[in-house]
Simulated scan of single mutants.
Amino acid sequence: MSPRTPAGQGKTSDASQGETSEASGSSSSGASTDESSTNSSEGGGSSDSSPGTGELPEGMPAVAAKRTKEGAAAFGKAYQNEIGEASKSGDPSLLDEMATSKCPPCSQVVKDIRTDAEKGRVRSANPYSMSGLQATKRPDSGYKVVMDVDVAKHRGLKNGKPYGTVDATQFHLTQHVIWRGGGWKIADWVVS
């Protein structure tokens, strides 16, 4: 089972084959200048607290549609939660909508989930729970959203049958959240 814990936190093991593998890490350090260039009308620094033009995904709090510090933080948390939901369902299409097209770790997690789903592999549950959520205005654009993520021990499933175990772990997540097209987008993220 390919782990989908961001930046490869944790280990997976296939008890049936006695294999254990360390997940690969993300080295993303910044957003592309194409999509995160400084623009005061899109940088998230405005006091405009009206909802974005797009509809919110099911289960996302209404505050995540507001162009505020709280909205950026709520959106960042919702994105991380959606990684877990997509890993469970095998459908990362909502993740594509929630990120810019120039976000390398976003594209990679979508690719990994799709590849696993094509092989019949998903997670038994959404393993993520988040705490310590904070947002800080960035000098270039948008917000730096940070949180601690706990990953619960869970099983990988292959064609509906147990396939390996993912050990519990935790990590610190930092995201770059920007306002684009009437709503928040993830421009980059890194795990430490």
Rank of each mutant, 00 (worst) to 15 (best):
E70S: 04
A15D: 14
N159M: 10
G71P: 03
W184F: 05
G181Y: 08
T115Y: 09
A117W: 03
C106T: 05
G45N: 06
V110W: 02
R67S: 06
T68E: 01
P104I: 08
S29C: 12
G18T: 06
E58F: 09
W179H: 01
S13G: 10
S40C: 10
G8V: 06
D148W: 02
A99N: 09
S26N: 14
Y79I: 01
Y128V: 00
M130K: 00
G18R: 12
V146C: 07
P92E: 03
A7L: 06
W179Y: 03
G142L: 04
A73P: 00
G71L: 01
T136G: 07
E22Y: 11
V145H: 01
G52Q: 07
R123F: 14
W189L: 07
S36A: 15
E82G: 02
S26M: 10
A135C: 02
P105H: 05
R67W: 11
M98A: 07
V149G: 02
R123M: 11
A99F: 11
K161I: 12
A99L: 11
A64T: 01
S16W: 06
K102W: 14
A7K: 03
S29Q: 12
P92G: 04
A86C: 06
T33V: 11
T5M: 12
G164R: 00
S107N: 15
G10T: 04
S24I: 13
K88Q: 13
E82T: 02
N39K: 06
E70Q: 10
N81T: 00
E22R: 08
G18H: 11
W189K: 02
S131W: 01
L133K: 01
A86L: 02
A31V: 06
G18K: 10
S36D: 15
Q170W: 11
G120E: 08
G25A: 12
E97T: 15
S27T: 13
S28E: 15
G182E: 06
G44C: 05
D34I: 09
T12E: 13
A15K: 12
V190H: 09
Q170V: 04
V177H: 00
C106E: 02
S37R: 09
V190K: 10
D91L: 08
K158R: 11
V110R: 04
E70M: 05
G18Y: 13
Y128C: 00
A64H: 03
G132Y: 05
E22S: 12
K161C: 10
S89Q: 08
K11R: 09
Q175C: 02
Y79R: 01
T169K: 08
W184Q: 02
H154R: 13
H172G: 04
T5L: 07
V109S: 02
A7G: 14
S87K: 04
M147H: 00
L94I: 13
S131L: 01
T38W: 13
